[in-house]
Every structure is written in structure tokens, then in C-alpha cells.
Design a protein around this nucleic acid. Structure first.
Lengths: 227, 227
DNA sequence: TTCACAGTTCATTCTCTGATGAACTATGAA
DNA sequence: TTCATAGTTCATCAGAGAATGAACTGTGAA
């Protein structure tokens, strides 16, 4: 390990303003500089400075569209590192019977490009229980029954069978300490859920809202019940 | 997520000197302030200041033994976060046919309290292949055959059957992008390997040296061959 | 063309905090 | 008791780099 490089990276993600930016981007979406400046409550020149430092270090990438510049993580590893850092934050004092039970973010949320939280874990569990996925220590594999199942809900697994990248890999979930579905299958699944309006993104948050249609569908397809 | 707290944590682990300390501790051992000051090339008052900040934030813990104060991670999550941060460091330029093949650290190393690197992954794979472990998305389970096997090599699995904590859980390995054995079983296994002199720790590094006896034993018990 | 807006660049200021040396406490050995 | 070593505390200093405002570039819309 090049210590100098590690120190550089540490200093980059260790700045209070930059960590705000990086946290905001954890939902995997791309945001413009102005959006981020509002979220992080920083002046535009200031955010611009931080963003350029992060892109120079290949932590963020930019995609220009007209006069807008959309910033997002340059690679999956960034999401892991930020999530892992979040796991270090001491659990908030459980003050006076304030119930945090269905906290929407830990309940159902997106992590980078896939589904996380309690619901993400539950869906993955059900996929295994129904023998649509087979779990290995380093990956998930789609079973023949799984291929048919995903076909039925409109995800063509052949599309990424040809691709070299991992189809389905476990991804540590820091709120649940369990595994949920990442990789191209996890990503397709989230896209599908959003497109079919089974789930909806919320403004400026990684929380996902499960629609009525979504609850019905998840019960019928996977036997998942919601209270 | 309490943003203020996240910023505090980020600033703490984001400092160049502190990240040196945290990286040194990644092998899971406890070091004294003076050892760390030598490793990180910092004055004693300076290291003391950093160490107290890290302990105050419950990132490190101290155990006092006489006039020595041994510092180590206060919890597993710290190891994850530091490893994840390390994964963000850009791969070194592959300059002139310098072969990095058997880089000892990525080859065989300890991660916090268990075995990581190529060898850690290989051992885990063999344990599964030999049906001593069964892999689940969120954990490993010891099979009846496994109980006998671990018994034979001197690890009494009943000892931690009673404990509440996870016996064997997968742990992302950032150099291999695969899973290796963590949890109390992983920890016992590493301890055993060290105690039986099948592997040896190296000074100030997370690299582990496999002894001749170790190669022999790993081949006989698990069919692992070393070139 | 002209304006509005997104975003950046630059020079400057300012603040935070890491580093330092001296003095101090505590433990163990002679 | 005395000395050596481990480690901390304190007051002070210095410097990195974050924040700021003004000026600039570039795109899109009217």
C-alpha cells in the first residue's frame, strides 16, 4: 500500500463538506453542482472546488449535459467506503420512548445502484428460499427456475449472461448486517421496480417508498408481507 | 443519519497522521503509543493527541498494562471502514515489468482478527468444497462433518456454539473481491494457525508467512497446494 | 443579440487544528 | 530513593487549505 496515496484519499473523503457531498450521492444518482451546493449548504465556488478535487482523484465522475454538469461516484468502491464510514457513526441516543421502528431509510433504501435496507435483504432472502437464486460465498447464481422467474417479471437474464461482469454479488448492508443483491441483476431489479412504479424514489433521500401496487406485487411474486 | 456525527467521524479518520495509525492497526494487534509513533514517524506528544481523539470517539480502545498502553480498534466496523478506504487507493502504475505477483501482503495477510488475502479465500473455498462449511448469503454454517474436522485440528466449535455472536460470517476481502472467513470461527482459526506455527506474523506488516510445516498441513488437511 | 443561469477561476482572507518542546505523572527497575 | 522510560498535558506556533466575493466562460432561451 502506498501510504502517501492512502493519506491523500483519506484527506479527500475526510473533509466535512466533502463527506456531505459524498453522502448525498450514496443513492447512486447524479446531481448537479447547484443541487449539491443547496444540499450541503455551501457556496457555489466552494462546492465547485470540492467537486473538482474529488473528480481529479477519480472519486467522482462528471457527465456534462448542456450547461449542467452531473456528478456521481466514479466507481462502486466509493459507495462501499462511504457506507462503511457511516457504520462508524455511533447509534443515536435512544432518547425517551421515541420509536425508530419503521425508519424509512433503514427500512427500504437504495444503495448506489441497487436495493438495500430491510426490504432489500428480505427480497434477497425470498429469492433464495424460492430457489430462484443460489448463494455462494462470493456470489449469487441464478437457477433455471430463477431465469424463468426473472423472465416473467420482465428481466431478461440472457442480456447479462453474455457480459463478463458479475451478475449478482452479495453486498454488505450496513444497517441490516446482512446481504442483499448487488451486481447487474440487483441493478436491473431496482430499475424494474422503479419503472413499474412498485417503488418510488424520494427527494434528496435514499429512502424508497413502496407503492400499493408494489406491496401487492411483492406479496404475489415473493410472498413478502408488509404490516 | 446525523450529519454532524458523520462529519466528525470523517474528519477523525481523514487525517493523514491518523490514517497511518489506523492502517498500522489493521492487522488486529494492539500497539503501544511509542510503537505507533515510530511507525507513523510522529512525535510522542503528537501521537498521544491523535490517539486520545480516536479513543474519545470510540474508534480505538486502550488496554493498560503497567506503564504500557495498548491501542487497538474498538470494534470490527473500524476495520471494515479502513479496508474500504484502502480499496479507493488507485492501483499503482504498472511500471516496467515489475511483477507484483506474489506480493506477500495481498497473498496472505491478516485482516483485523482473521485470515485474509488469496490464502484466506482459498482456505474458505476448500472448507466449503469439503463440506465442512455451508455458505449462506449472510453467514456460514458449520456442518456436522465440519464440527468433526475442526475438532480434529483442535478447534472446539462447541465453545462458541453457546455464544450469541456470529460463529462464521463472510467478510469482503478487498484485494481478492471474494469472501473469507470472519467471526469467531475465523478468529479461532487464525489463532490456531499462529499458535501451531503454521503461519507467522511479520514485523509491522499484515503479511503472514506460511511456514514449511504450514504448507504441509494445509495440503494434508485441505488439499491446498503452494507453488 | 441579449439576458439569465450554471458553473468555474482567481486572489485573498481566515480559521482550524496539527505539530512542537517543556514540564508533568506514573510505572518499573536498580 | 533514585533513575529511566512510557505516556500525557499544556501553551504556543505555524501552515495548510477551506471559504469568500468578484470576475469570467459557456450554454440555452427569448
Amino acid at each position: 500500500m502506498d501510504m502517501k496515496e492512502l493519506e491523500r484519499v483519506a484527506a479527500l473523503i475526510g473533509d466535512p463538506s466533502r463527506v456531505k457531498i459524498l453522502w448525498a450521492l450514496l443513492d447512486g444518482r447524479a446531481y448537479t453542482a447547484t443541487e449539491l451546493s443547496i444540499f450541503a449548504d455551501l457556496s457555489r465556488p466552494n462546492i465547485s472546488m470540492h467537486l473538482s478535487k474529488l473528480t481529479d482523484a477519480d472519486i467522482l465522475k462528471v457527465s456534462c449535459q448542456g450547461r449542467h454538469r452531473y456528478y456521481s461516484y466514479s466507481r462502486m468502491e466509493v459507495a462501499y467506503a462511504i457506507e462503511a464510514m457511516g457504520a462508524l457513526v455511533p447509534a443515536p441516543e435512544l432518547k425517551k420512548n421515541v420509536t425508530l421502528r419503521n425508519d424509512p431509510v433503514s427500512y427500504c433504501r437504495s444503495c448506489y445502484d441497487h436495493l438495500a435496507g430491510k426490504v432489500g435483504v428480505a427480497i434477497t432472502d425470498q429469492l433464495i428460499k424460492k430457489d430462484y437464486l443460489k448463494s455462494f460465498p462470493d456470489r449469487f447464481e441464478i437457477t433455471p427456475a430463477g431465469i424463468i422467474f426473472f423472465e416473467r417479471i420482465g428481466i431478461d437474464t440472457r442480456l447479462f449472461n453474455s457480459q463478463k461482469r458479475t451478475i449478482a454479488k452479495p453486498c454488505l448492508d450496513w444497517t441490516e448486517r446482512r446481504f442483499h443483491l448487488a451486481g447487474s441483476l440487483g441493478s436491473s431489479l431496482l430499475q424494474k421496480l422503479l419503472k413499474e412504479d412498485l417503488m418510488r424514489r424520494t427527494e434528496n433521500s435514499r429512502a424508497l417508498q413502496i407503492t400499493f401496487k408494489g406491496k401487492k406485487e411483492l406479496f404475489e411474486q415473493l410472498g413478502l408481507e408488509f404490516n
